[in-house]
Write a protein that binds this DNA or RNA. Structure first.
Length: 428
RNA sequence: GCGGUAUUGGUGAAGUGGUUAACACACCGGUUUGUGGCACCGGCACACGUGGGUUCGAUCCCCACAUACCGCCCCA
């Protein structure tokens, strides 16, 4: 093998791309029905865009960024997530302006990059479908976004999903809680796992969802962030919960749920799915939340934002589990040639069928008639037209219904001008 | 970044320190004349991830690297 794809990348072949298209199309339909519209931003951005938004100490920035210097000495990074670029575009294009209807709602889909060890459902180039809504702090918008995420998954017939929410509060909440947590954990420092000792100084919140068993025991009695919410944040969170309940959307509150990126505020949520595809353990398929300070951080006005991202690869693993049979579309017609002398007229017939909007193909490898029929069969052609010299002399060609085996002669003109009628006649 | 397992043709795979690397599927060709799905016959790995080493000799032993998968970190 001389060449192979870069580590952590994948080729999506035609048999798979059908599933991708299905997911993307479904997402688009759902999002558009909520009045979200597509935005496309660059796959790479200035490194600072991600450093600024995600937080310098975040793992994404400190060790997972796919970055490089271009020929103009610019520090560039392939986007590790979608939100930062969208916020940058929102501010740069002044979409916060009064001529825009608020909230400003967009969705996107495309590749993201993180330099890390590949695993199942986890690659260096992976794909996300995401949405963002700017310009409203209404808890109803939080509810709408979560409802939309759930609707998409159920439309994709994903089973066993669970919505988990939490609130990170506002800046003051974070500050107070951060202090309280450090105060609580410091006496246990010696008992914490190595990772958590390190996190105590850098990002104590992360200790909350440590997988280390002893860490979890310690964390069990730690203060909860929900007790530190400011009145405004608490009211917001309550309204979100009420809103979800009012719409009949089930959810769990997990006060230990945190985020790897620093920009989140107030509501954060994840939709987790338990599936054989993930060894029957829980896997987060959708994650999102509010980021009410980000727009300002990028130089825009003090404006709220909320969004979520879907891991497409993970979603597809779930789909493969449920309905693995995605049958390839059959070909409408295959044109068989009996000799080199009919190449041009056969091609004309073929093109007329294609121009009429039907899928059709022919042989390009000089196969014998038998071989051509065999390929027609493999392509699941519904009809086969055999073009030969004697037929052309009569201006009539045999067309065969491959399912029934019935073959009849039809005038060439009829095929060229109303193939639909010809097919209809033969389908009876 | 750390740890574990794996790597044989188009695919699924068997196999041994030493003559022709099983078998199956797929594919190609044929079974006389221009028609598919069946049957039969024939063909199809200068080669066993890459590079070194050990050995008289390695696909099979050792080392390194690459890639894949799993776990950790982290996350979608």
């Amino acid at each position: 093998m001389r060449y192979q794809k870069p580590k952590g990348t994948a080729d999506i072949l035609p048999s798979d791309s059908k599933k991708w298209q299905f997911v993307e199309q479904t997402a688009q339909d759902v999002f558009e029905s909520y009045n979200f519209h597509e935005i496309r931003t660059p796959i790479f951005e200035s490194y600072d865009v991600f450093e600024r938004s995600s937080g310098e100490s975040s793992d994404v920035v400190s060790k997972e960024m796919y970055d490089f210097y271009d020929k103009g000495e610019r520090h560039i990074a392939l986007r590790p997530e979608g939100t930062a670029g969208v916020v940058r575009a929102y501010v740069e294009n002044k979409l916060f302006g009064p001529e825009q209807v608020k909230p400003y709602k967009v969705y996107y889909h495309g590749p993201m990059f993180r330099y890390e060890r590949p695993q199942s459902g986890r690659q260096r180039q992976f794909h996300q479908i995401g949405v963002e809504a700017f310009g409203s702090t209404s808890p109803q918008l939080d509810v709408e976004v979560m409802a939309m995420a759930e609707q998409l998954l159920s439309k994709l017939q994903i089973n066993g999903m669970k919505l988990v929410i939490n609130s990170l509060g506002d800046a003051k909440t974070r500050e107070d809680y951060h202090q309280a947590l450090v105060d609580y954990l410091t006496p246990f420092e010696g008992e914490l796992s190595e990772d958590s000792k390190r996190r105590l100084g850098t990002n104590p919140l992360r200790i909350l969802d440590s997988k280390d068993q002893h860490d979890q025991e310690i964390v069990q009695n730690a203060p909860t962030i929900l007790d530190f919410l400011t009145p405004e944040s608490e009211a917001h969170f309550e309204a979100v919960k009420d809103g979800l309940s009012a719409l009949g959307i089930d959810f769990d509150v997990d006060h230990t749920m945190v985020r790897g990126l620093d920009y989140y505020t107030d509501t954060i949520f994840e939709i987790m799915v338990t599936s054989p595809a993930f060894n029957n353990s829980e896997m987060t398929v959708i994650a999102g939340g509010r980021y009410d300070g980000l727009v300002k951080e990028f130089g825009g006005p003090e404006e709220a934002g909320i969004g979520f991202g879907i891991g497409v690869e993970r979603l597809l693993l779930l789909l493969a589990q449920d309905n693995d049979e995605v049958t390839p579309a059959p070909l409408d017609c295959y044109v068989v040639k009996t000799s080199d002398n009919v190449t041009t007229p056969a091609f004309e017939i073929l093109q007329s069928i294609r121009r009429a909007g039907f899928s059709a193909d022919q042989d390009y490898l000089d196969r014998k008639v038998k071989g051509q029929f065999k390929n027609a069969d493999r392509l699941q052609a519904r009809f086969v037209i055999t073009v030969g010299e004697s037929e052309l002399a009569q201006q009539q060609v045999p067309i065969k219904n491959m399912a029934t085996g019935v073959q009849v002669d039809v005038p060439v003109e009829e095929i060229k001008h109303d193939f639909k009628a010809v097919m209809a006649k033969l389908s009876e």
